[in-house]
């Protein structure tokens, strides 16, 4: 029997995060190409009840470590436990989410198992010879690189969220569950606080639509206008560095090279000039709309749809039209 492909899940607040389904779907595709099975390693507190659901996305079997000590991610706990389980499973390849915690976990796991992680993968191909190659963006998306692993080294890759298609195979498909045994170490670090935003705000890196404002917004209060539009669209609100440096928006809203890299279906850039460092963060958006009063703004060279208007008159008009659409 060929070795299985394995995914590592991410579980938070009583459920698997969506990116886990994306990783499972990609894992299934790779397993099919290799003619093998797909297993998962799932760590969490109270995770056993949800684990069979991974079957829907193509997972055949889940190795579960369910323990109250696994409520929050801590590298000092998760890495040794997962490394131990993986050693027993000896998979052909391991995939995990390139989420905040997944990136952290993957890097440390790769070093511990001496395999080298490839981080932030956006495409995977399986050759006829069964060799896995993966692509990731470097130089802030100005260049892509393909890479492969040396013979005998099982690929370990973290998958960028919001890129891979989720494939729901069958609503009723259940994964088999097995409790994995691995000692849970006591960590040196401790979680003092774990604060989740409960306002229902859409997280930038997971948003389907982003409305982003730059220096053209002129002041913090004017973002209410973008919040309105975003509310109508079910969108998240982002910002350029100029807006963040001015103190109008929190740094967690910054999109770009030294901010977040986002991959929404639609990115609406309002009063943003389109500096190369900003494009680095949103260049993958499927559709880009630019609203800018300067017809020569570089953002127009990247935008699918451009509006040359004063944003203070155009944004309210756009919100009105979206409202009409939603009510029709």
């Amino acid at each position: 029997m060929a070795k299985n492909v394995c995914i590592i899940t991410e579980y938070r607040n009583g459920d698997f995060r969506r990116v886990t389904h994306e990783v499972a779907s990609e894992g299934r595709r790779i397993a099919d190409a290799l003619g093998t099975g797909l297993v998962a390693v799932a760590l969490g507190s109270g995770i056993s009840a949800k684990a069979p659901d991974l079957g829907k996305y193509g997972v055949d079997k889940v190795y579960v470590v369910d323990d109250p000590a696994l409520e929050y991610y801590l590298a000092g706990v998760f890495v040794p436990v997962i490394a131990e389980v993986l050693k027993q499973l000896d998979p052909a390849a391991v995939l995990l989410p390139a989420s905040v915690d997944g990136r952290d976990l993957g890097a440390r796991l790769g070093a511990r198992m001496n395999v080298t992680l490839l981080q932030d993968v956006i495409e995977v191909v399986v050759g006829d010879d069964g060799k896995i190659k993966a692509k990731w963006p470097m130089f802030s998306g100005k260049c892509f690189a393909w890479c492969e692993w040396a013979d005998g080294v099982p690929p370990l890759l973290s998958i960028r969220p919001n890129i891979m298609q989720t494939q729901l195979l069958d609503e009723s498909r259940k994964a088999e569950i097995e409790a994995a045994s691995a000692p849970i170490p006591k960590p040196r670090a401790s979680v003092l606080k774990y604060e989740l935003d409960t306002s229902g705000k859409v997280e930038l890196t997971e948003a389907e639509i982003i409305v982003s404002g730059g220096r053209g917004m002129k002041d913090a209060a004017n973002y209410a206008m973008l919040e309105d539009l975003a509310g109508q669209l079910g969108a998240a609100v982002g910002a350029s560095r100029a807006a963040v440096d001015s103190g109008w928006r929190p740094h967690s809203d910054q999109v770009g090279q030294t901010g977040k890299v986002v991959n929404p279906n639609l990115y609406i850039a309002v009063g943003i000039s389109g500096a190369i460092q900003h494009l680095a963060g949103m260049g993958y958006s499927k559709y880009i709309v630019a609203v800018n009063k300067d017809a020569d703004a570089p953002i127009f060279t990247k935008a699918d749809y451009g509006i040359i208007e004063d944003l203070f008159t155009f944004v309210p008009a756009l919100t009105e039209e979206v409202k009409k659409l939603k009510n029709s």
């Binding site: 001496n114 963006p137 100005k142 692993w149």
Partner: peptide, 26 residues
């Protein structure tokens, strides 16, 4: 343990359309 096999430049995003057509703001 891992090596780059090739680099490629991303597909160039083309400038799209400017919505004008003599329309007013709304």
């Amino acid at each position: 343990r891992i090596r780059i096999t090739s680099l490629e430049l991303p597909p160039q995003r083309k400038a799209g359309k400017i919505i004008d057509g003599g329309l007013d703001t709304s």
